[in-house]
Design a protein around this nucleic acid. Structure first.
Lengths: 130, 130
DNA sequence: TGAATAGATGAACGCATACTCATATATTAT
DNA sequence: ATAATATATGAGTATGCGTTCATCTATTCA
């Protein structure tokens, strides 16, 4: 650690703290279980994308089926531009896919994981999907 | 919608677009399926908390058991202050809980949903937990 | 061909937030 | 009581991001 700290280990019923010594066994044990920084960053991106209310509502809509941009904009009462920007974010992170039909772009969820994350999250906040 | 837009509906095999008219059936259908703004905000908070690499690594560590602040700081090679700030965020959103034992604070995950979100996320990025 | 429309996108503004630094609080040891 | 330790926290700074506004491309219609 870099500031203000010591080091603790469980030792039967008592907790031993010491600043200078590091307990290699615990550290090693811990370090096996840490996801590395790259994985953490990669993972954080998915959650980051799902951490915006507008994007969640888009996902909520798309969980029911394919929709075009202006349907979404209308349903959420947001500008086409705002929706389009958000859809790009969702596209870039592979959470949604789309197909072009004339000048209409139809969007849909790309992955079941997204839906699972969404419903698990809803579960967590104590709501259930309609 | 507020800018640049029309309105589309699936109509058998053809898609009808019209700007001024709103198709009440589709809108109504959609609006039943939208999570409301409050729910979206509430849900976004959980994902927001899980959208930071440092917090994810903390969660990763705590998924293996109870740890004190300086254990975490040491394992992640971050300052005690930074960890403490992040733990407060995790505490305030009920993702972790803690107990005080003397001057040592032992933290652990508060909820199985957290772990489920974490592992589902890892699944999504194609990693599996060690 | 020219007008209208669906959507995409760059710039800019405002707000949120992760970390650092300094310091405060609470507990243990001497 | 005094010193040391474990953690918490406020202020400040830098970075990231969501939305708006203006504009651009591509497609359809007249």
């Amino acid at each position: 650690m870099k500031a203000g700290g010591g080091k603790h280990t469980r030792n039967a019923e008592e907790y031993v703290c010491d600043v200078q010594c590091i307990h290699p066994d615990l550290v090693e044990e811990l370090e096996k279980n840490i996801i590395d920084g790259d994985t953490a960053s990669e993972l954080s991106q998915i959650f980051r994308v799902m951490s915006d209310p507008s994007r969640l509502r888009i996902i909520s809509l798309l969980s029911k089926g394919e929709l075009c941009v202006c349907d979404i904009a209308d349903a959420l009462n947001m500008t086409q531009s705002a929706i389009s920007h958000q859809l790009r974010v969702l596209r870039n992170t592979q959470l949604v896919k789309f197909r072009k039909e004339g000048r209409v772009a139809w969007y849909s969820l790309d992955d079941d994981h997204v839906l699972k994350l969404f419903t698990t999250g809803l579960d967590h906040v104590g709501h259930t999907e309609p």
